[in-house]
Design a protein around this nucleic acid. Structure first.
Lengths: 166, 166
DNA sequence: CATAAATTATTGGCATGCCAAAGAAAACGG
DNA sequence: CCGTTTTCTTTGGCATGCCAATAATTTATG
């Protein structure tokens, strides 16, 4: 063992186990992983622009675009142009979308229950503290890390010369 | 706030921040997220079958297939049929693959450093304990959760009747 | 020993998620 | 007031990751 990156490894493992469980719990509700987060955000505050959602969920705008469209096709929410800002779209819940709330929250409660199983209150509080600290540390470090992260690709072709034109 | 699912929410946030940072750090090395885990496993123990890798990394075999092929095309590893088991493929590192080790481990050390920044040793140990506990709890709960997880789809067409044939 | 069952790898489909680029519309500047 | 810059959304490309189904081979079973 003697791993010098144990915390990172554990973060990866915890995340995958959590995702797998969430995927399973969400499936009977007809939702894919990630869609529930968008809905939760809308349950907390309805009628938001996609940009707001992207910011609140720390998601790429393009991801929000596609997930919102998927949820729209499922009839859980609505997209209509904003009147104040003619380039923004306002996302609103439908009755169907509101109706899903209880089930989704129940699923997430099971997830929470599983994660914290067998922990006394003290330990649960400590768990939350630790996670908050990790999140704070990582998001604090992100700007610096991203600054050193050059744009471009992994399989960098070096010089595209003429990257195809419309 | 008064969120009843704070831990789950934090797990999601920690995971995304971690992934984002890792993606950035790996990019200059020409690696995508996840590929480094496979390589790390091979650095620890070379010449493994894909099934072994899948099990060790808790990955779906099909994911291993594709990631391994990608790494093979980058010249970092080799795939050759096993002699004992004629259906298995043995994955082995190339010199190039071995040469990447230092850089990847350095990148992960930065990740680890960022995650644990400003924590005294005591707190680092506690962090690890918490993550181990979460992982243990979630993977312990997974079988039961998956048992209740019906196969089939989200947008279930109910009865496909004739799900198209080759 | 033949037959049923489990294992290994692959393919195709689908979803999330990122980045990069592009078109509209708004905010900002001189 | 016009030009520049920022913001909002979308599209296309690419990668990971899952599931389901298939083919080949091994192992277990009666």
């Amino acid at each position: 063992m003697s791993d010098r990156h144990e915390v990172s490894h554990m973060i990866v493992r915890v995340a995958r186990a959590h995702q797998l469980a969430a995927t399973c719990l969400l499936r009977p509700l007809g939702l894919y992983l990630g869609q529930e987060l968008l809905l939760m955000r809308l349950w907390e505050r309805d009628d938001q622009s996609q940009a707001d959602l992207a910011k609140a969920l720390s998601l790429d705008p393009s991801t929000v675009t596609r997930t919102v469209r998927s949820l729209e096709q499922q009839g859980l929410l609505t997209r209509r142009p904003s009147e104040r800002d003619r380039r923004a779209l306002v996302v609103s819940l439908t009755d169907e979308g509101r109706a899903l709330r209880d089930q989704v929250e129940h699923a997430w409660s099971e997830l929470e229950r599983a994660a914290l199983a067998g922990m006394p209150d003290r330990q649960r509080a400590e768990t939350l503290r630790v996670l908050r600290r990790l999140e704070g540390n990582l998001t604090a470090a992100l700007p610096e890390i991203r600054a050193a992260c050059p744009p471009g690709v992994p399989g960098d072709p070096g010089d595209p010369g003429d990257p195809h034109h419309p």
